[in-house]
Amino acid sequence: MVRPFALLAAVALAVGLTGCATTDSPGGGAATGDPAAPAELRIGYQLIPNGDLIVKDQQWLEKALPNTKIIWSRFDSGGDVNTAIVAGSIDIGLAGSSPVSRGLAAPLNIPYTVPWIFDVIGDNESLVVRKESGVTSLAGLAGKKIATPFASTAHYSLLAALADAGVAESSVQVIDLQPPDIQAAWTRGDIDAAYVWTPVLAELQKTGTTLITSRQLAAKGKVTADLAVVTKAFATTYPEALSTWLQQQDKAVKLVRSDKTAAAAAIARQLNLSPEEASRQLDELVLLDASEQAKPEYLGTAEKPGGLATNLHAAAEFLVGQGKLEVAPDLATYQQGINPAALAAAFPG
Rank of each mutant, 00 (worst) to 15 (best):
V320Y: 10
V327Q: 14
P107Y: 07
T32H: 09
S73E: 13
L308G: 01
P329V: 10
F5E: 15
K63I: 06
D176K: 09
P340V: 09
K206C: 09
Q58R: 15
S89E: 10
K232D: 15
G306V: 06
Q270K: 13
A344H: 10
A328E: 05
D330L: 09
L47K: 11
F75Q: 03
A154L: 05
A193F: 03
E276G: 09
Q293E: 12
T209C: 02
T113Q: 11
S171F: 11
P99H: 05
A37V: 15
T224L: 11
S133T: 15
A314F: 02
S126K: 07
F5C: 08
V128K: 00
E326S: 10
H313D: 12
A314P: 07
W72D: 05
Q247P: 07
L41P: 01
G349I: 06
S77L: 00
P348E: 12
A161P: 01
Q58A: 13
T231Y: 01
P199A: 09
K144H: 13
G166D: 12
V200C: 06
L287P: 02
G122C: 11
A264H: 08
I117Q: 04
A31E: 14
T207Y: 13
N272T: 14
I212D: 00
W116K: 02
A168C: 10
A290N: 08
M1D: 13
R130E: 08
I212E: 00
I70N: 06
D250E: 11
V100E: 00
G16M: 08
V11L: 10
A194T: 07
A341S: 14
V256P: 00
A341D: 12
S170F: 09
A309W: 03
Q248M: 12
A105N: 02
P99M: 07
F234H: 04
D259R: 13
A235L: 04
L325F: 09
S291N: 14
C20K: 12
L201M: 13
A342L: 03
A139L: 13
L246A: 07
N50P: 00
E276W: 04
A151K: 02
A302C: 10
A142D: 09
S171E: 13
R188L: 13
I117L: 13
D119A: 15
T18Y: 14
Q173V: 07
L138H: 06
R3M: 12
E284C: 06
L177Q: 05
V223S: 05
G306Q: 04
V223F: 03
G337T: 06
A161V: 06
F318Y: 10
A39F: 02
I191W: 01
T236Y: 05
L242S: 04
Q173C: 06
I338H: 01
S73V: 05
E203A: 15
P26N: 11
G140P: 03
Y156R: 07
T136E: 15
S73Y: 02
L204Q: 04
T68F: 03
G33W: 08
L308E: 03
G349M: 08
T261R: 10
G122Q: 08
L299S: 08
